[in-house]
Simulated assay, not measured.
Amino acid sequence: MSDLIFHHYPSSPFSEKVRLVLGYKQLAWKSVLIPRIMPKPDVLTLTGGYRRTPILQVGADIYCDTALICDVLEDRQPEPPLFPLHNKGLARVLAQWADGTLFWAAMGYNLSPAGAAAMFMGRPPEEAKAFAADRGAMREGMTTPRAGDATAAYKSYLRRLANMLDGQDFLLGERPCVADFAAYHPLWFSRVVNPAMAGVLDATPNVIEWMDRMHALGHGQMEKFSAADAIGVAAAAEPAPLSEAVFQDEHDIALGSRVTISAETFGTEATEGVLRAATRTRYTLERTDDRVGTVHVHFPRIGFVLKEVRN
Rank of each mutant, 00 (worst) to 15 (best):
N194A: 01
A278R: 01
F103N: 10
D290E: 15
V58G: 15
S12L: 14
G49M: 08
P239W: 05
T284Y: 09
S257G: 05
H219S: 08
A153C: 08
F103G: 10
N163C: 10
W188P: 06
D71K: 06
Q96N: 14
H185C: 15
Q57K: 05
F225K: 00
G141M: 07
P241V: 04
M138C: 10
R175C: 00
I261A: 08
A277M: 11
A270L: 01
K17R: 15
L46F: 05
Q221G: 00
S226E: 11
Q168V: 00
L102Q: 12
V305F: 01
I302A: 13
M119C: 02
Y50R: 02
G148F: 08
I62G: 11
L33Q: 06
T53V: 15
P239S: 11
A240F: 10
L275P: 04
V295L: 12
N206R: 14
V193I: 13
T144W: 09
A245K: 06
A150V: 03
M211A: 13
E174W: 05
I5V: 13
L73D: 12
H7I: 03
L102K: 05
F299G: 04
I55Q: 08
A105F: 01
P125N: 07
A130N: 08
A162T: 03
V295R: 07
S262T: 09
A67I: 10
I62Q: 09
A228L: 13
A236R: 07
H7Y: 01
M214P: 01
T279N: 06
N110S: 14
E272V: 04
P300L: 00
A106R: 03
I261W: 02
K25I: 04
A183H: 04
N163T: 10
H185V: 12
A153S: 08
A114E: 15
F225M: 05
Q168K: 11
G273I: 00
E16H: 12
R159W: 04
G49D: 02
A67K: 07
E174F: 03
A117I: 06
D252Y: 00
